[in-house]
Design a protein around this nucleic acid. Sequence first.
DNA 1: AATTGTATCTTGACAGTGTCAATATAGCTT
DNA 2: AAGCTATATTGACACTGTCAAGATACAATT
Lengths: 212, 212
Amino acid sequence: MDKIIPNITPATPTANYHHGNLREALLAASVDIIRNKGIQGLSLRNLAEVVGVSRTAPYHHFKDKDALLAAVAEQGFIEMNGFFGKIIQNPDIPLMQKLKQALTDYVRFAVQHPTQYELMFGRDMWQEENHDQFQRTAKDCFRQYVQLFELFKEEGLLAESENPLRLAQIMWATLHGLAKLACDGIFGKQDDLDDIIEYAMSRFENLTHMPK
Amino acid sequence: MDKIIPNITPATPTANYHHGNLREALLAASVDIIRNKGIQGLSLRNLAEVVGVSRTAPYHHFKDKDALLAAVAEQGFIEMNGFFGKIIQNPDIPLMQKLKQALTDYVRFAVQHPTQYELMFGRDMWQEENHDQFQRTAKDCFRQYVQLFELFKEEGLLAESENPLRLAQIMWATLHGLAKLACDGIFGKQDDLDDIIEYAMSRFENLTHMPK
DNA sequence: AATTGTATCTTGACAGTGTCAATATAGCTT
DNA sequence: AAGCTATATTGACACTGTCAAGATACAATT
């Protein structure tokens, strides 16, 4: 018998039995669900139903639920990598401005998509060996971030004794802690958050020889 | 009668039907399981079996699985509150030493019990309104921590312009970020961690008027 | 001491989950 | 046209959280 499902065709209008680009449809829907209903809110069966496909279809594109989650997390880092790149490669922005922009955008992303951010830095993603692709993308992102601090060093704006990698790590830890506390609802007010970023930035400026 | 609190009797080898102190047994076992097998590794049914009781028995002591998790998380903050208190109230330790000790112990706890720490600061615990008792205990803990910074201020060791609460928040964010990155396996080496704590401390010392 | 009430614990049941096995279909390669 | 492989499907299983109904122990009141 023929399929009654009207098939909400995803980009390519193909037959009904073969979805065509199920993988990306699953990924997009997963990102959506996770952002709206949290990690707990994503079940493979429900997801399959939303996309209009049978329960076990996803298993041909993702080994596991875990693998799917890793893909969603990776998607987050890809996005991050995007706006980091835009900032760093833009020659019109002065260095200090770049840093501030990067920090702000970082926290903004976290606060805007708290559950996806939770996934990206979740223990499960980093603990096991399974998530090679994810970890590679994430590390690319971090590398780009560190580059910012190396620029400071190269331009002689950091004291000789300062290690740019270490500095980047601490700054990232601060940022990450801030972001998590904020989007987990532990820091109450958003105003506080902006203030604190400002504060952290000024703390950093003390370490530079910037002409103010 | 003079029984102020009836039935404190723990571990009484009474009949089998009534466990006696099931609540605490469940809590202890849960902490154990979560520390060893992670949050995912805890199922109510398995827990019940371990404690030697039927599947639904826990529901007479915890409304939900969520409520049980909240209790486990709270247990963590109680422990933290303990060693914070010991440090702060010890008159033999100089102030700067106290801070360093507190920071070190904090990170040590996180690294030693990463999954419980994950729970304590997990989104689920803080988002909903249900976890009053937990949140109160956690905030007590934070309040004690802030007290440390207020001591610095009171003794005139902080510049007038520095806000001790803000400072505590940033420092906590840094610590929290560090702890999470470390125990989620994102920062590879433990050596790095110690170094970074040292670094963060020295950064803080720059803000004080300590006689070195 | 008997009764009654309440807290505690039990078994039975249900819907929901991730995932495997076996099967069917589509589309590409030859 | 044939067949191979990637893709999708239904059926099944063990496991989960949680509710309802019944059983048991203990405490307080009579």
